[in-house]
Simulated assay, not measured.
Amino acid sequence: MSYPTFSEISTGLTWMDHQEALNLLYQHEVLNHKLIWACARNHDLEAYALPDRQGCLLWDPRHQHMRVSVLGEHAQFPASFLQEAALLEGPECAMQKIVEAHPNENSSSRTSLIYTLENQDLQMDREFRRLRPDDVEVVNWLIQFNAETRGRTLTRAEVLKMLYASYREFYILEHRQKCAAVAAVNRWTLHYQSVSFVYVPPESRGKGFGRRLMASLSAFILQERKKNALLFADPDNAVANVLYQSLGYQVAGKHVSVLAGGQGQDAERRGPSAEHQLL
């Protein structure tokens, strides 16, 4: 089945190859972290430059998913953006302009804080280690994680595929030789590596395991990977935000997802901010 290209439904855009798109996105590496990763890994995406090369647009023709970056203050957007795309996402500076220029009362949005961490004196806990094949309880944890934060139930096969993806590594904090919390490092760019899937099961919450895990994982990224740490957080999750800030994380910007016309809300209702469950 063929899908129309974005050039067929919008004007004022210039097609780019992936390397050109990556070069533009790298100008604002932190805010464009998710876009850089999508562009680098998914060559089914189509890439376009906004007029006067003031930004980059990544278009998924199959799912009508659009990711937008803005590099200048006066970037212009085709009027058909909200009409044609079911889901839009990008840095707040880009998304705010689109929504303000083309208001749609049927659209809904979700905002995530983008945190970064640099040059902090953190230590790796002696009970911090990489996930092992015998850590079987983690499979159920990730099923619970997706049910709690993403509103969907994964099969064991789907979770195992997630656990052993080549671009993602899961780490564990132990307590009395049992797993107490889990988290992953995955997307990386030139200077940053991101943290996601932070989960403490209900029976282990409120005991400081989330903090110990996050401190260890952050130290691992800074000291072993020689990169800065990055994560996305729900602005309404007060517990998680206090924790990140206490470890030295600072807000570098915001990431916004817009569901045009209410489409795809079941699949995307958690947004990028619900990758952490620390309560």
Rank of each mutant, 00 (worst) to 15 (best):
10 S>A: 15
80 S>G: 13
37 W>P: 00
193 Q>V: 07
201 P>A: 09
79 A>L: 08
256 V>G: 04
191 H>W: 10
39 C>E: 08
18 H>V: 14
262 G>W: 00
56 C>K: 07
230 L>D: 01
194 S>K: 05
176 R>N: 15
140 N>H: 11
85 A>R: 01
128 F>T: 00
80 S>P: 12
121 D>S: 14
258 V>W: 00
102 H>R: 08
237 N>C: 05
128 F>V: 02
192 Y>M: 04
239 V>A: 14
32 N>Y: 08
128 F>K: 01
147 A>S: 13
183 A>D: 05
154 L>A: 02
17 D>C: 06
109 S>F: 12
146 N>C: 04
122 L>T: 05
163 L>E: 09
228 N>A: 10
31 L>I: 11
242 V>H: 15
108 S>C: 08
187 R>P: 06
244 Y>C: 02
165 A>V: 04
99 V>L: 01
234 D>Q: 05
6 F>W: 11
2 S>V: 14
193 Q>E: 11
205 R>Q: 06
62 R>I: 14
159 V>K: 07
189 T>K: 01
224 E>N: 12
118 E>N: 10
220 F>E: 03
166 S>V: 15
263 Q>C: 06
277 Q>V: 13
50 L>T: 02
28 H>C: 06
190 L>D: 13
212 R>C: 02
141 W>P: 06
112 S>C: 11
168 R>I: 07
227 K>H: 04
247 L>Y: 02
1 M>V: 15
115 Y>Q: 07
63 H>V: 10
113 L>V: 09
115 Y>D: 10
153 T>E: 06
24 L>R: 06
196 S>C: 15
48 Y>M: 10
5 T>W: 02
96 Q>V: 10
241 N>D: 04
2 S>E: 15
92 E>H: 10
242 V>E: 15
229 A>L: 00
121 D>F: 14
77 F>Q: 00
74 H>C: 08
108 S>M: 07
5 T>G: 13
173 L>R: 05
16 M>N: 12
202 P>S: 07
137 E>K: 03
194 S>Q: 11
132 R>W: 09
97 K>V: 03
141 W>R: 03
234 D>T: 02
151 G>I: 12
201 P>G: 03
197 F>S: 12
248 G>M: 03
11 T>F: 04
215 A>E: 14
191 H>K: 08
55 G>Y: 07
147 A>F: 13
256 V>R: 13
258 V>Q: 03
217 L>H: 03
2 S>C: 13
259 L>K: 12
165 A>H: 14
24 L>W: 04
199 Y>I: 07
215 A>K: 09
278 L>H: 05
86 A>S: 13
139 V>Q: 08
53 R>S: 15
197 F>D: 14
72 G>D: 12
119 N>R: 14
172 I>K: 00
233 A>S: 07
50 L>M: 11
182 V>S: 10
106 N>M: 09
63 H>T: 13
91 P>T: 07
116 T>F: 05
247 L>I: 02
89 E>G: 05
73 E>D: 11
28 H>I: 12
23 N>P: 02
185 V>D: 03
267 A>Y: 10
24 L>D: 09
62 R>G: 08
78 P>S: 00
82 L>C: 09
164 Y>N: 13
137 E>R: 06
153 T>D: 06
162 M>T: 09
220 F>H: 03
136 V>Y: 05
226 K>M: 12
225 R>F: 02
